[in-house]
């Protein structure tokens, strides 16, 4: 579903192997050429991208959990089918993002192991719980909406496999976003209880969603390299503002109140939010969000309980290969 601006590129350990090659590489970036897996690239570029794409993949997979929490309780058969298909889409996104990361030389297993060991990050937003059906609408509307804001520019990212994966992902995300909004619209036109459910969900998700864009530009130290490499094309604050400006009228249309009494519109028409609690963001990234432990535990459980299945498949494939080999030898 989503890549988060965690601002952890590798500018410091960048070793410029060869000044001429590095200059030629930067010239290609400057000319908006796509870098492909077999092309030369600086080690730090490879490392930054591997980290960003795998974090994005982990986010898709962990992101299946909060929404998956409502598949068995979806209120109608149509909603149930749509939600199951949506969460399945997230799984598909995870798969092709892992494949894109693999083109940089790390295996899916290595990357997944790092996530399960708690060493790799995933988007902070998935460490919040889905308490009511309105949370499913809100995630589609806001979380997928924020993801699209972040990911549209990534369709033009300098690394070819990532950019191409993003084009497909964005198409599906925009469908999810409309689906989420439609859930909200139905709730807001429903009973008083349903409308209260929608408002409550917005109240809980609004601030965490704003945090999805990453720390404010003034506190962010590492964006420069990503910008230079055209991995990142807009700053965290620019994207956040774009998202807020797009979302406020949607909330008004729904008849919902943005839970920010300090928010006001400036002269240019931008909606300026009150202060974001970055301490909460820091805590969630540090593992102290409401669901960090549950999310990792669920992924580890699936991984551990699936081990015998994966072993069986490998053992069977091996047996089959030997049998075919023996047959061919006869």
């Amino acid at each position: 579903m989503y890549t988060q601006a965690l601002n952890t590129s590798d500018a410091d350990d960048r070793n410029v192997e060869d000044a001429a090659r590095a200059a030629a590489f930067q010239a290609r970036i400057g000319a908006d050429e796509r870098i492909e897996p077999n092309d030369w690239m600086p080690a730090a570029y490879r490392k930054t991208l591997t980290r960003q794409i795998s974090q994005h993949a982990h986010s898709e997979i962990v992101g299946m959990l909060p929404e998956g929490n409502w598949i068995t309780r979806a209120p109608t058969l149509r909603r149930k089918a749509a939600l199951l298909a949506k969460v399945q889409d997230e799984c598909g996104h995870g798969l092709y993002l892992y494949a894109a990361a693999e083109t940089l030389g790390s295996s899916r297993e290595e990357l997944v192991d790092a996530m399960l060991a708690g060493k790799a990050k995933y988007s902070s937003i998935f460490n919040y719980p889905t308490l009511t059906w309105a949370d499913i609408g809100t995630i589609g509307w806001l979380v997928d909406g924020a993801a699209i804001m972040n990911q549209i520019p990534l369709c033009r990212c300098s690394y070819g496999p990532y950019a191409r994966a993003m084009i497909r992902v964005c198409k599906e995300e925009s469908f999810h976003q409309r689906q989420g909004f439609e859930i909200m619209l139905t709730l807001c036109r429903g009973t008083d209880e349903q409308k209260a459910m929608a408002q409550d969900a917005l109240n809980r998700w609004w601030w965490p969603v704003l945090m999805m864009f990453g720390p404010p530009d003034k506190a962010s130290q590492h964006s420069d390299t990503s910008t230079k490499w055209k991995i990142k094309r807009f700053s965290n604050d620019e994207l956040r503002q774009k998202f807020i400006d797009a979302t406020v009228p949607q909330a008004q249309f729904l008849g919902l109140t943005i839970p920010d009494p300090e928010m006001k519109q400036d002269e240019a028409g931008h909606w300026v939010p009150g202060p974001i609690d970055w301490e909460e963001f820091k805590q969630v990234l540090a593992g102290n969000g409401p669901c960090n432990r549950d999310r990792l535990a669920a992924r580890r459980k699936a991984h551990d309980e699936g081990a015998w299945v994966r072993e069986a498949a490998a053992a069977y494939a091996e047996k089959r290969k030997r049998r075919q080999f023996a047959q061919a030898a006869e």
Binding site: A81, A85, C91, A307
Partner: peptide, 25 residues
Amino acid sequence: SEWCGHAPTLEEDMALANMGLDLLG
């Protein structure tokens, strides 16, 4: 659909959801 997000591999997660969707349809 109860398997969604919990299957032994990502490929199988997708396959189980797919079959679930067929049946739901």
